[in-house]
Amino acid sequence: MDRLNAMATFINVVESASFSGAARRLEIGQPAVSKTIAQLEERLGLRLLLRSTRGLTPTEAGQRFYERALRAIEEADEAERSARDAGTGLSGPLRVCAAVTFTRIRILPYLKPFLDMHPQLSLDIVLDDRHIDMLEEGIDVALRMGSLSDSGMTARKIAQNPRSVLGTPAYFAQHGVPATPADLSCHNAVIYGQTGSSWEFRRGSTEVSVAVNGRIKVNAAEGVRAAVLADMGLAISSEWMFEPELASGALQRVLTEWQLPAMDLWAVYPGGRMASAKARAFIAYVEELLSA
């Protein structure tokens, strides 16, 4: 018995809830479908399907087998695509999800060389600061910043960026430059929802936690940028988010002798799926781009 063929047949039976529906999907006769399932159950020594008023439904063992079989078929399909890609180059769409501001500043302006290297490849980039459901949204790979909470995903850290306390020269001219982390309690902080209002600093063996106050709290990095660049307060941020302004001098770092936890960047793939050749190539390019 061809095991992959049997798995594919079983998957189609579960998804169509009938032998006849699977037969139509596979464009084969219904007896062939029934025979394949019977042989599969005999091989495994398990009943995989039950008849009910809704048609055929998987048993508990059948549901587990369905999930593993689906994964095996996906990986086999990806292995074939990877082999073809090795000979013909990357092609087709790649759906990527990433944070809005980070991608706008550090990724999008530098993608042309990658696209030039792979003229048959297209990028569908979903800009979203939230951790969206990758399977539901059809995402091939996501770039996520900070700590990861979803243990069902496959992730690899690909870059790290320092975080600093940042503000404009005009803000510091009006409110003064903080000399110690404790001074921040007297400043206007632009609070990013993901960062919170408690900031952790370290210098050597000394660790300090500071509760900051601010009249502006936003849930997106674009809002932090707008408020800080409008001289409304200082913020703690990865330097990726303000790279152009730091380079031009429009923004200043303060408390540079103190260290803040760095910002990690992760390549995240949907749980249980093999990363495609396209996704791996894209992540390798991003990793090289950020290390330059």
Rank of each mutant, 00 (worst) to 15 (best):
M145C: 05
P178W: 01
M153T: 14
Y192E: 12
N188P: 00
P109T: 10
P178T: 02
I158W: 06
L143G: 12
S122I: 00
A142C: 07
Y110G: 00
M145I: 11
L166P: 02
P109S: 08
G193A: 13
H175P: 02
L148C: 06
H118D: 05
R130V: 02
A170F: 00
L166Y: 03
G146F: 06
R163P: 01
H187E: 11
A179E: 13
S147P: 01
G152V: 02
H187I: 00
P113A: 05
L111S: 05
G138L: 11
Q120R: 15
P113L: 02
Y110A: 06
G196Y: 05
S147W: 09
H175A: 08
A159W: 12
L115N: 04
G138V: 10
M145V: 09
T103M: 03
S151K: 12
G176F: 06
L127T: 03
K112I: 01
V190F: 08
T101H: 09
F102W: 06
D128E: 15
Y171F: 15
P162I: 10
L123Q: 02
R130K: 14
I125V: 15
A182M: 13
L121P: 07
T195K: 08
G138H: 08
L111M: 07
S151N: 08
S185M: 14
I125S: 02
G146I: 08
R106Q: 15
T168D: 01
T154W: 03
A142H: 07
M145A: 13
T103Q: 05
R106I: 01
L135G: 04
D150V: 12
A159P: 04
V100H: 08
R144E: 15
L127A: 03
G146M: 07
A189M: 14
T101Q: 11
L143W: 04
H131A: 14
A173E: 11
P119R: 06
I107P: 02
L108V: 09
A142M: 11
F114Y: 12
R130A: 15
V177L: 09
R104Y: 01
I107H: 03
D128N: 15
V165T: 11
D140M: 06
H175D: 02
I107Q: 02
V177G: 00
A99R: 03
I125L: 08
I139Q: 03
P119Y: 07
G196Q: 05
N161M: 11
G193F: 10
N161E: 13
D128F: 04
S149Q: 14
A159N: 12
L148G: 04
H131L: 11
L127D: 03
D133Y: 10
A173N: 04
A155N: 10
I107N: 02
Q174E: 11
P162A: 07
T101I: 01
P178Y: 03
L111E: 05
L148R: 12
